[in-house]
Design a protein around this nucleic acid. Structure first.
Length: 269
DNA sequence: ATGGGCACCTGGCTGC
DNA sequence: TGCAGCCAGGTGCCCA
């Protein structure tokens, strides 16, 4: 479900409901997520106050007095704030009970999501340590993009999807970013010109930022924790479309690494 | 070091 | 109507 904008929206909506609250209990109903939720996690969290939230790539960080929770939504995960006692639905895997009387509830049909806890600096956690710079970090610019595309023969779409090189971009936004940078998804990374690399760096930021402002992309089931539907899907040029939204040319579909890519053969080179 | 393929899951839709 | 087959917004890991 979520790429960077959807995770960031989730964070922003949850933030005022959870920061400053104390965790009464963690109730895990289904520990078999992408990685098994540790049995001793409830004991570690009980009684801790939530001091804030952050995001790194597509991981949501919930800062506690003595550590940090690392939450990943996977493909189909979502978090919601609900009044205690709200009836559970299928695929509600864990609840964080708060002293406000509310519950932070995680739902994830496919169970590709995950829940980790570290009492160390979270940036040193194995899942975060090797991630690329944030797209909104000043370090992420044309010269960074130039560096990572040199001597790589891999298709540029796979560079955008590789979290050691670029974070936050998933399958939908990868196609959209390439469309707006006027670059075809199969182009070898090293074949990009200075001009193309410059456009690419700019569009990575622009697309993520605009999707964030639009409340994310709702295709089938992304709903923010407050129930709002994102409307960025109206702004998609090629992803999942029959015709290019800019010029009307039939959109081409292909499979790369088992994932769908879309591009406009007229607009993109 | 890089790149490719697989694995982990469930649900919804399509087409026979 | 039933059901097989395919597809879906992610990403770590193993292997060549």
């Amino acid at each position: 479900m979520p790429e960077l904008p959807e995770v960031e929206i989730t964070r922003r909506v949850l933030e005022p409901h959870i920061t400053g609250r104390r965790i009464v209990a963690l109730k895990v109903r289904e520990p078999r997520l992408r990685w098994r939720v540790k049995d001793d996690l409830p004991a570690k969290l009980a009684g801790q106050r939530i001091t804030g939230t952050a995001r790194r790539a597509k991981y949501l960080l919930i800062r506690l007095e003595a550590g940090t929770l690392l939450v990943h939504l996977g493909m189909s995960g979502s978090l919601r704030i609900l009044p205690a006692g709200t009836r559970r639905r299928a695929h509600d895997h864990y609840d964080l009970l708060l002293d406000s009387g509310n519950t932070l509830r995680f739902n994830d049909p496919r169970r590709f999501g995950s829940l980790h806890y570290t009492s160390d600096d979270p940036s040193r956690h194995p899942l975060l340590a090797r991630l690329a710079p944030e797209p909104f970090d000043p370090k992420f610019d044309a010269s960074y993009m130039w560096r990572i595309t040199r001597r790589r023969r891999t298709p540029i779409k796979q560079v955008l999807m590789n979290s050691r090189l670029v974070v936050g971009v998933g399958n939908i936004y990868a196609s959209e970013i390439l469309f707006r940078a006027l670059i075809r998804p199969r182009r070898q990374a090293q074949s990009l010109s200075r001009e193309e690399v410059k456009r690419l760096a700019k569009e990575v930021r622009a697309v993520l930022e605009q999707a964030l402002e639009a409340g994310g992309t709702t295709l089938r089931d992304f709903v923010a924790p407050d129930g709002e539907l994102g409307y960025f899907s109206q702004s998609l040029y090629v992803y999942g479309r029959k015709e290019c939204r800019a010029c009307g040319t039939p959109v081409r579909h292909l499979t790369q690494q088992g994932r769908s890519s879309y591009y406009c053969p007229a607009c993109q080179r």
